[in-house]
């Protein structure tokens, strides 16, 4: 039942976002759109409740996690992304690269946490996640490995992705 309610609310919010600006209720929506939205989201919730909430774990409903996620997006993530792009720009112009694939052990347990970290790694300085194994170790393509770090079996996590594993743990686990 909770899965059905969550999926319906999610679909309804998405519908409202897509139809904003259609009428006068709260200055944003028309009556027709709201009625159609409720009808369609109940339908979507009934059909797809077992896909959105497959793990039956509702920890992501906690609003503190959403606030942390937004804080992460506009704070450390955006700064790291801007730095990543200046870094790529520098390497495109000078051609100084020393690439390789290293292994890191972020010590995360849930699928969502690993997805979160892998996407963050791809969008931030000089790193691109390539593969993941059963113990949730990530294989990361690193465009500029510092001298000496290629000899370690597990690369130092602070150098690869600074504080992201901590944020991933806070938001997703």
């Amino acid at each position: 039942m909770l899965a059905f309610i969550v999926t319906t609310m999610f679909a309804f919010v998405a519908y409202l976002a897509l139809t904003a600006g259609s009428g006068d209720i709260l200055g944003l929506w028309s009556m027709e759109e709201i009625v159609a939205g409720i009808f369609l989201s109940v339908l979507v919730g009934a059909i797809s409740r077992n896909y959105l909430c497959r793990s039956r774990n509702y920890r992501m409903l906690n609003p503190i996690r959403w606030l942390l996620f937004i804080a992460y997006l506009i704070g450390p993530f955006f700064i790291a992304m801007a730095r990543a792009n200046l870094d790529v720009a520098y390497r495109v112009i000078t051609g100084k690269i020393r690439p390789g694939i290293v292994k890191i052990d972020p010590d995360l347990k849930t699928d969502f946490g690993v997805t979160f970290l892998a996407n963050s790694i791809t969008l931030t300085p000089g790193t691109l996640s390539v593969d993941v194994d059963e113990e949730n170790n990530l294989y990361v393509h690193w465009i500029n490995i510092p001298e000496g770090d290629e000899k370690m079996a597990v690369a130092p996590i602070e150098k690869v992705c600074s504080s992201f594993p901590k944020w991933a743990r806070r938001v997703a686990e």
Binding site: I97, R98, P99, G100, I101, V102, K103, V130, D131, D133, Y139, H141, I145, E150, K151, A153
Partner: peptide, 12 residues
């Protein structure tokens, strides 16, 4: 990878 100093993924 064409120019790589290390490739841990190939090793496993």
């Amino acid at each position: 990878p064409k120019v790589a100093v290390v490739d841990r993924l190939e090793e496993v």
